[in-house]
């Protein structure tokens, strides 16, 4: 990367109204820090308590999705670069005039793409009341995995954001795709 490219990266983020960005491995400590920073930022932007809560809630689910999605095992620096890269993710938090947008990207095994796509399409096909019913049914029938996930994250994100989930899978190679998620919060 040429030395001055950092400026074009900076300009792009400035023009896109990026409040906060991160690229790398998502750890529990990182989540705490990002949530902390965003709480302070929203407070200083004087967002309504209602908006602050919504953004915070959706952000928690988006970040914890990333955290749980990548392998939870403690990574070590001896691991190959490829493996480390596959565990890393990108997060952008964008502030438009009336909206916050949380954008995330992470690698996903190709064989898991169809399942996830099916779930997201189902969530997007439901209206507000149907989402409520779907959440309740899922809550009542789900079990918590050893990782602590209950399979409710995406439903909750759709419900609280009040918008459809915008997503795309980019095929990287025969094993892996990159999952791009865009969540708008009114």
């Amino acid at each position: 990367m040429a030395l001055t490219n950092i400026y074009s990266l900076y300009r792009t983020m400035e023009e896109e109204n990026v409040l906060l960005s991160f690229k790398g491995i998502v750890t529990a400590d990182l989540l705490t820090t990002v949530l902390n920073i965003m709480e302070n930022k929203m407070h200083s932007l004087q967002e309504s308590p209602k908006k602050q809560k919504k953004v915070f809630n959706v952000l928690v689910e988006c970040l914890q999705n990333l955290y749980h999605h990548v392998d939870n095992e403690v990574y070590n620096l001896n691991e190959s670069r490829d493996l480390l890269e596959r565990k890393s993710a990108i997060i952008l938090i964008v502030k438009e005039t009336e909206q916050f947008i949380i954008r995330t990207g992470n690698y996903i095994d190709n064989h898991k793409v169809d399942d996830l796509k099916l779930r997201l399409d189902k969530i997007n096909s439901l209206d507000k009341d149907e989402l409520k019913d779907y959440y309740q049914a899922s809550l009542n029938s789900s079990t918590v995995s050893a990782k602590g996930t209950a399979g409710l994250g995406m439903i909750d994100i759709a419900r609280k954001s009040g918008n459809k989930l915008d997503f795309e899978f980019l095929k990287v190679n025969e094993e892996t795709s990159f999952f791009c998620l865009n969540v708008k919060i009114d």
Binding site: E61, L139, V144, L152, G153, D156
Partner: peptide
């Protein structure tokens, strides 16, 4: 004040 979906279960 807040709870995540892991806690909701």
């Amino acid at each position: 004040e807040y709870f995540n979906t892991s806690s909701s279960k």
